[in-house]
Design a protein around this nucleic acid. Structure first.
Ligand SMILES: [Mn+2]
Ligand SMILES: [Mn+2]
Ligand SMILES: [Zn+2]
Ligand SMILES: [Zn+2]
Lengths: 124, 124
DNA sequence: TTTATTATTGCAACATAATCGCATTAATAA
DNA sequence: TTATTAATGCGATTATGTTGCAATAATAAA
């Protein structure tokens, strides 16, 4: 399915890259300039994830957050990083800190989802 | 609020400890012998979490899983561990592997939720 | 044992997150 | 300019989890 460029996609991607933080669907719908339907936002975000332009983070609040990929490397081995969710300013940011782990023999990892929750510097 | 011992609580806790793996509400309802209302299961699980008898894991499938605490130490400093979710047998298990990280100055962590998803040994 | 207190439970309603079917619109190729 | 089909809006639907309330039952008090 060949992708097409639309105002909606551009606006969402632009917002995510400018924010520099991961955003949830409702935050995007709230903070974006144009009116975009909820289902459409999800579809756009999911396609971005499929294309490796954005990565998805599921927080312990049960919501999905989406972050513009910067060092998520497409060809290179994806180096997983921690995420920090501030319960005060309700943002999620990608941390530099990488996730290191070793698994028991026979286990195969496909996804890594690591989130630290608490209060960020600005809110402390 | 003083806690009371009931057949429901005992059955849920017994199932969790026997399974040795984290279970979701629907899995518990499905695999437990007696009939327990959905809301009740959640209430029981939440109270177990409050009491530190069980710990909660939110997976990237957006669901909550509950695991009987073994080394989650009540008094001792809680040492966070990784969790592994097998998409084949649909189970989540606590790994021995501890989670290590260092945060930027000013950040304060309250919760740690780290999940690796893939295929477990049995299902490989 | 009997009675009183109130934690626990079931049930229905509610809240929220996310997805899906379908008709319409519009980006892009022909 | 026309044809093709990806993208969108809208309403309905599914899924997870919580909450209010009346009924039930565990435990303390008499
Ligand atoms: Mn990230
Ligand atoms: Mn665990
Ligand atoms: Zn903050
Ligand atoms: Zn498995």
């Amino acid at each position: 399915m060949k992708r097409r460029s639309t105002p909606t996609k551009e606006a969402v991607l632009d917002l995510l890259s400018r924010r520099g933080k991961a955003m949830s669907q409702d935050a995007i719908e709230r903070e974006i300039d144009i009116d975009i339907n909820r289902a459409t936002i999800y579809r756009v975000l999911n396609s971005f994830c499929d294309d490796g332009i954005v990565h998805r983070i599921v927080a312990e609040d049960g919501k999905q957050y989406f972050a513009f990929c910067i060092n998520c490397g497409e060809n290179q081995v994806p180096t997983h990083h921690f995420h920090f969710r501030c319960t005060t300013c309700k943002t999620i940011e990608c941390l530099k800190e990488e996730v290191h782990f070793s698994l028991p023999i026979g286990y195969q990892v496909e996804k890594v989802n690591c989130i630290l929750t608490g209060t960020c510097e600005d809110c402390s």
